[in-house]
Each structure stands twice: as structure tokens, then as C-alpha cells.
Amino acid sequence: MRFMILVKASTDSEAGVLPSQELIDKMMKYNEELVKAGVLLAGDGLQPSSKGIRISYPEPGGSPKVVDGPFTEAKELIAGYYLIDVKSREEAIEWALRMPDPHGFGQGEIELRPVFEAEDLTDNPETIAKEEALRKQLEEQKQR
């Protein structure tokens, strides 16, 4: 069962303030633990929304609207993420609780969200098989 751990942005992360070396060291230790346990699928920090792009669809059938950042409400933005594959919701929570304060000074907030699996969205065996084939293809591409 896959979960995304979303690291919420702070006013400092949105201002482009980089983490301290102490926090980087703590996060690297956490990353190593995730890798050693075999649960980490992906994870990265994100640059501030001032470097981002938002695409919205204001009306059905209409043209998408492209807007450059920055975006308001830092607490609603994402500063980073982890994608983990665990056995249960409880295990996902355990891993999230082990993460150091992602901003290092008490502003950290993370959110856990289960990832939809093909079986959650459809009972069509062809669609499920196509999804599995695409995942396998991605894995093969990564190994090249």
C-alpha cells in the first residue's frame, strides 16, 4: 500500500531559505532508514512556488490557464514529498512520526495520503493489467 508523505511549506521554505546542515544531516539519516527498510519509492524537496507554474481549467471544455508563481498561503503549499510502500496505514504513520521536523524550527507539518491503486479505481481487468504493465515498464526504464 503506497502513501505519499507531503511536507507542507513554511514561510521560510517559500522564501527560499535553505535548511541548516544539521537538518540536512537528520533528513539524510531518515532517508537512509527508509531505504534500508525497503519502503522508499521516491522523495524530493521542492523549490519555492515562486519558481512554480500552476495550470488550471477554469471552465469545462475550455482552454487551460497557465499562471507563474508565487502562490499565496504557504501553509497550503508543498515543500517536499516522499512516496513510500508499506504494509498498512499504521506503518505509514510510524514512518511519518520518525521524520525530523521538516523545517527544523517548529513550523513543520506533514500530511499522509494513500495513493490510489488501479484496483481502487476500477474493476476492469484490462485497465488493471495495463496499469501493471506501465509500472513494470517504468521500473525497467529506471534500471537502464
Results as ranks from 00 to 15, higher is better:
5 I>W: 02
74 A>Q: 09
4 M>G: 06
119 E>R: 13
97 L>G: 13
134 L>T: 11
29 K>C: 11
19 P>W: 06
16 G>N: 05
119 E>G: 10
62 G>F: 02
19 P>R: 01
42 A>G: 08
83 L>K: 01
101 D>S: 07
39 V>W: 04
62 G>E: 04
11 T>V: 15
74 A>Y: 10
56 S>E: 06
139 E>S: 12
92 A>C: 10
18 L>T: 12
54 R>I: 00
50 S>D: 03
39 V>A: 04
53 I>C: 07
113 R>K: 11
79 A>M: 06
127 T>K: 10
60 P>D: 15
89 R>D: 15
1 M>G: 13
44 D>K: 09
144 R>Q: 15
89 R>M: 15
61 G>K: 04
112 L>C: 08
140 E>A: 13
47 Q>D: 04
14 E>V: 00
81 Y>T: 03
82 Y>E: 02
41 L>V: 12
131 E>M: 14
21 Q>M: 12
60 P>K: 14
92 A>Q: 02
89 R>T: 15
3 F>Y: 13
26 K>W: 04
5 I>T: 05
56 S>D: 07
96 A>Y: 04
117 E>L: 12
90 E>H: 07
97 L>M: 13
109 E>Y: 01
98 R>N: 12
101 D>Q: 06
76 E>D: 12
57 Y>M: 11
37 A>L: 05
106 G>C: 09
90 E>P: 08
9 A>L: 05
73 E>N: 07
56 S>Q: 10
96 A>H: 03
133 A>H: 06
71 F>V: 00
41 L>Q: 08
79 A>G: 08
111 E>I: 03
70 P>W: 09
27 M>V: 15
126 E>P: 01
56 S>F: 04
82 Y>K: 00
68 D>I: 01
103 H>R: 02
